[in-house]
Simulated scan of single mutants.
Amino acid sequence: MLDVEVAFALPDRQRIISLSVPQGTTARQAVTMAGLEAAFPELPPATFGQADLGIFGKRLGDPETVRLRHGDRVEVYRPLQIDPKAARSERAGREKR
């Protein structure tokens, strides 16, 4: 068994769930096992099933095939509300006024 964590955060709260998973568990499987839907009932369940995932801040290209190692922290990323380039451009426009 491997000890891992699954983390998800909203602007006002976060949840880190510790799990013991069998060797060979993928990042996506760990997110499913964590049951984040119960901790965040206001979000649609697809939020967790389709979200981008990372391990310790490094985005995973294919979370369905990345096998976890002991001590990994799987992070569930929320979609961006606004494109970072658009936000930067908007801030620059406000500062010029």
Rank of each mutant, 00 (worst) to 15 (best):
G54T: 05
G49T: 09
V66W: 00
K96F: 03
S20F: 04
R97N: 11
T25V: 12
Q14R: 13
R97S: 10
I16R: 14
L10A: 10
E90K: 13
A34P: 02
G49V: 03
Q81R: 13
T25D: 04
R13S: 08
Y77W: 05
P84A: 07
I17S: 07
D12M: 04
V76I: 10
L43I: 06
S18M: 07
R91F: 04
T25R: 00
I16P: 01
R88F: 07
E37Q: 14
Q14N: 07
G49M: 03
V31D: 03
G24M: 01
I55C: 01
L19A: 04
D52V: 10
E37Y: 00
P11A: 10
L36R: 02
Q81M: 14
G93K: 15
A87Y: 11
P63D: 01
K96G: 05
F40A: 06
P84S: 02
A87Q: 13
P11F: 03
Q23R: 14
P22K: 11
Q50L: 13
R13E: 07
A92Q: 15
P45D: 09
G24K: 00
V66Q: 06
G61C: 00
L19N: 02
R78A: 11
L53Y: 01
V31L: 04
R15G: 02
V76P: 09
Q50I: 05
Q23L: 12
A86G: 00
E37S: 15
D62G: 00
S18P: 10
P45H: 05
S18Y: 07
L2S: 06
D62S: 12
D62C: 05
T47G: 02
G93C: 06
E90Y: 11
G49A: 10
Q50C: 11
